[in-house]
Design a protein around this nucleic acid. Sequence first.
DNA 1: ATCAAATTTCACAAATTACTGAAAATTCAA
DNA 2: TTGAATTTTCAGTAATTTGTGAAATTTGAT
Lengths: 187, 187
Amino acid sequence: MNLTPLVQSFVLHFGEMGSHWGINRTVGQMYALLYVSEKPLNADEMAEALGFSRSNVSMGLKELTSWRLVKLQHLPGDRREYYSTPEDVWAIFQTLAEERKKREVDPTLTMLRGALLETPSNPADEHAQARMAEMHDLIDLTTSWFTDIQRLDVDTLKTLMKLGSQVQKFLEFKQKLPTFMGGSETP
Amino acid sequence: MNLTPLVQSFVLHFGEMGSHWGINRTVGQMYALLYVSEKPLNADEMAEALGFSRSNVSMGLKELTSWRLVKLQHLPGDRREYYSTPEDVWAIFQTLAEERKKREVDPTLTMLRGALLETPSNPADEHAQARMAEMHDLIDLTTSWFTDIQRLDVDTLKTLMKLGSQVQKFLEFKQKLPTFMGGSETP
DNA sequence: ATCAAATTTCACAAATTACTGAAAATTCAA
DNA sequence: TTGAATTTTCAGTAATTTGTGAAATTTGAT
């Protein structure tokens, strides 16, 4: 399989971006290739298209699988395993957010909670704990909110996002008079 | 300077986490040390406390500065440069989000916009472009929303977050009758 | 201007991470 | 079962990233 220039540049960009992220270059490229592919690909096709060794592709797919970013499927009359990415970009985004939370945020929250249980034995520790508490509360609030908001269906989420900072007006209702309600001026 | 066990474990954890992120271990440790420190530290103090070479600390501080995560200041009667982190954790979070957006998201948006301007010359490119458009729109909406919401003051943001998925009820007002308004049951 | 203190730069060494090819393990059709 | 097709593992090498010490540069007090 030969990549078109358009796909080529997308794939290469994702590779570079991968390293700015925590993911390695070749894994980024593999994901990008699957993401834009019309049909599921098997490992040999990927190795050929990207110029990687077969074993590297195997490792990469294992990694992508652990992130729940690829789907495995079989084609009738073909023993080989075919991979693709989920269709729904919002679902992909959600998966990514969940995995990152699990890997990068939750361990920190756990560590902070542990540290906050200790009894500070000197002023330095006391100050450190106060700082850790601030960090804990921020992370806790942010991630709880994220988890909570994932329950919303995509359309509601889109509406909320398009509303942007105008949410403020809606929130003000909680404190203010019911009579204001009528005139809803949305962009 | 000798680190207490509490601070030590916080610093080490941040170092490990740093690598799961895009940041390197020693830079993570430096940030953590400054974050919990009662007073600003100079590079020598940091090198001594963490057991790094002076030059490594210099590089790390350069990196942290480029992320706008540390403040530089001078103490009266002391030539050396003292570093600290901003106090306000919400401001820190915001800075981090802005920098990550700038480095990791904006270049991708630019690449996608470029790719979407091309005229597809075959079915594969056509499909690839459709996928890229989906990705573009998701990222664009999400980051625009993020930028927009940063205008809100912290208290409003906290209120919004604590509300969580209950925002939905507020959003429904846009479509529904004014009479519902009155009974606001918040947790 | 001079000089010592402080900081930065940079070439190299050390450590880590990524990638490969060969071998081992697994899968499934016959 | 057997054995060919396919996938995975893994030891070793290649490539990259990280960290250091020495040298160069900058800074500011005198």
